[in-house]
């Protein structure tokens, strides 16, 4: 395996895994406030799936000779990144709809092609992830629908969530192809299958009719059907904000990393304790034989 290919894969799979783990936090933020028992169960199952996705992806990265702990430490001290979308806050219950519908919806568009990526363990992990992601997007849309057709207060929450998350969701596809640093080489290696702009357009085209179905206002005055292209025109996100978030200045960067660091640090005695017990048990068994 060429060194550059391996290095790029570790970066990509690692970042992807980190995104799943950090991605538990914005939605986890609402588990204890879910409004019904069923919503609580659905949301918890969903956020649990994200932990599972992180786990599958770390394992895929481990086949490249890097351990999960090594990757984790790089996340915790900021040497590795995760998707910037998770540096935005979740402020009302409709965000649980919007995150599933828009963020997971965008993620699916990125991930479906990766099931055919050139690196087998990554592709196989993505098959499992994609199967579970469609549950996520659907439950999100279901929440959104309930909110958009609910009381005036609920409709307000739905619109607020859509307005806040629309441009961050568009940014999930990465900067325009012309400016994306890793795109060209990754496409040649078949660990990236479509261009950023291609996927972004696809997302806009599939989402705008859904917004109309929900009866919500479009979050961008620039959205217009373009007959000639057979696609929707839309306003370019403010990329300076994107780079701000990447630089660590998003609304939640500091809190997200602090939460992950705390979980890791507080859990050290547990991980060490259970391992020590397993070793003692093995030694006792060995002595008895």
């Amino acid at each position: 395996m060429p060194a550059g290919y391996r290095k790029t894969l570790i970066r990509q799979i690692g970042q992807h895994a980190h995104s799943e783990i950090v991605g538990q936090l914005p939605e986890g933020n609402w588990i204890t406030r879910a409004p019904t028992l069923e919503r609580k169960a659905i949301l918890l199952a969903k956020v649990q799936d994200e932990a599972g996705h992180g786990l599958y992806l770390y394992c895929a990265a481990e086949t490249l000779g890097v351990s999960r702990d090594e990757l984790t430490e790089k996340l915790l001290d900021g040497r590795m990144k995760y998707s910037s979308i998770f540096n935005y806050p979740t402020l009302n219950w409709a965000d649980m709809g919007a995150v599933g519908w828009l963020v997971d919806g965008a993620a699916i568009l990125n991930q479906v092609p990766l099931q055919r990526t050139s690196f087998g363990p990554y592709a196989r992990a993505m098959v499992r992830v994609c199967k579970e992601e469609s549950f996520h997007a659907r439950q999100g849309f279901d929440v959104m629908r309930k909110m958009a057709t609910g009381t005036p207060a609920q409709q307000k929450m739905a619109q607020d969530a859509l307005n806040r998350l629309w441009f961050p969701a568009l940014m999930m596809f990465g900067p325009s192809d012309a400016e994306s640093t890793h795109s060209e080489q990754s496409m040649a290696w078949k660990i990236k299958m479509n261009s950023n702009d291609e996927l972004r357009q696809k997302f806009v085209d599939q989402t705008v009719p859904q917004i109309e179905f929900l009866g919500l206002e479009l979050p961008d005055a620039g959205i217009k059907w373009n007959e000639a292209r057979g696609s929707y025109d839309y306003s370019d996100p403010d990329w300076s904000k994107f780079f701000d978030v990447i630089q660590g200045n998003g609304p939640c960067n500091v809190d997200r990393l602090a939460a992950r660091n705390k979980a890791w640090k507080d859990g050290a005695w547990v991980r060490d304790g259970l391992l020590a017990h397993a070793r003692k048990k093995a030694a006792r068994k060995h002595a008895a034989e």
Binding site: A45, C59, E62, L274, A278
Partner: peptide, 22 residues
């Protein structure tokens, strides 16, 4: 179906049940 981490085989079975048979 995949992999996971566990301190020993017994815990690996239990973790596998939680992770891979949801």
């Amino acid at each position: 179906v995949g992999s996971l981490h566990a301190p020993d085989a017994e815990m690996a079975i239990k973790n596998a049940r939680d992770v891979y048979t949801r």
